[in-house]
């Protein structure tokens, strides 16, 4: 009997299938192609679009690209944590909707006399974190697939947003809050700075802290982490809390951009962020990838979208292209890991 054996619930012994180590190794060895793919994609797209269009390679356009990338980056960083553990979080759009409405009603606005300023901002992040906490607890305590839990909370978030939504759209009147989106630092919206800070924080967290390292370990071999006495459920929940808090932050950023509390603040945000994480090379099975890869993924998607617009392709076709790109990317990265007896559902 070996460590990899399984004991079925009624105690009978099921020895593990012995995968020859040569093959196991090749499966685990990250192919260089894997890591380079997003970089190559980015370079090829940039080169292609600059040849196709004079406006692409201009400082103005790159500023636009940076501004467009800010919110997806924040979402993608959060998702990366969850996906690295091997789980999934679909709730971002619901969280963003709830945050947007709630925060716009807490800030100085057109509908009530609140003016909570930074407290409201903290509240927005806290709302997201609570969503994440609920996701994590439902997932780890009830032992439900994260896909289902977060599908449920996605819609719960949307529902809460429409329930809280007053008769009129609340217009945010807090100038300093709006200046996050309208003001500029380094020639780009301040939101870009926020996004960069989030990315740096995420990267540091993953590389230099126990939380980050355990997130990797759980994605790599959850069972062995448990055997080593690590509180796997706690760290999984933490990953969801991080993702939720960042979705809350993304909701704030969207609200600052829109200037109103909007139940559609998160609409069509999840899919690009998820695509970016996967395109960047973070594996859905967990344990491989990282925040910086996800940033590359975001840039690939934003450059693709931006370049297509400059080339006169409509936004709708773009959405279709992104859908196709994600399927191709997932198929391409997973092609080497196919196996006769692998079970993927």
């Amino acid at each position: 009997m070996t460590l990899n054996d399984t004991i079925t619930p009624d105690g009978e012994h099921v020895p593990a299938v012995r995968v020859p180590h040569a093959r196991r190794m090749s499966r685990l060895l990250p192919g260089r192609i894997d890591q380079l793919a997003p970089v190559i994609m980015l370079v090829v797209l940039t080169a292609a679009f600059s040849m196709l269009n004079d406006q692409f390679m201009t400082a103005d356009n790159w500023r636009t690209i940076a501004n467009q990338a800010a919110i997806p980056m924040v979402l993608a960083v959060g998702l990366t944590f969850v996906i690295l553990t091997g789980s999934i979080d679909l709730s971002a759009e619901g969280v963003m909707a709830s945050t947007s409405i709630c925060v716009s009603l807490m800030l100085a606005n057109s509908l009530n006399s609140n003016d909570l300023g930074l407290v409201a901002v903290a509240g927005g992040i806290a709302i997201g974190a609570v969503f994440g906490l609920v996701n994590g607890l439902l997932y780890t305590r009830l032992r439900l697939p994260s896909l289902i839990v977060t599908l449920g909370t996605w819609f719960i978030g949307l529902g809460i947003a429409s329930y809280v939504f007053p008769d009129q759209q609340p217009v945010v009147r807090d100038r300093s809050f709006r200046s996050w989106a309208l003001g500029e630092w380094f020639g780009v919206s301040r939101l870009v700075t926020i996004a960069v800070l989030v990315v740096v924080a995420g990267a540091v967290l993953l590389r230099y802290t126990r939380i980050g390292r355990h997130v990797y370990g759980i994605g790599g071999a959850e069972d062995l982490m448990r055997l080593a006495g690590i509180r796997v459920d706690t760290y999984k929940t933490l990953a969801f809390v991080i993702a939720g808090a960042l979705a809350g932050l993304a909701g704030l950023m969207a609200t600052a951009q829109l200037g109103v509390g909007n139940a559609n603040a998160g609409a069509d945000r999840l899919f690009p962020a998820l695509s970016a994480v996967v395109l960047g090379g973070t594996h859905l099975a967990g344990g491989r990838g990282g925040v910086l890869q996800s940033v590359l993924g975001v840039l690939v998607l934003v450059v693709l979208g931006n370049g297509m617009i400059l080339s006169g392709v409509g936004p709708y076709v773009q959405q279709a292209v992104v859908g196709a790109v994600i399927i191709v990317a997932v198929v391409a990265t997973g092609w080497g890991a196919r196996d006769r007896l692998r079970v993927v559902k």
């Binding site: 899919f271 859908g323 399927i327 997932v330 198929v331 997973g334 196919r338 196996d339 993927v344 559902k345």
Partner: peptide, 14 residues
Amino acid sequence: AQVPSFIVTLGALG
């Protein structure tokens, strides 16, 4: 391709 159904169908959704 042995890719999880949820991600393929999410791509298809887009």
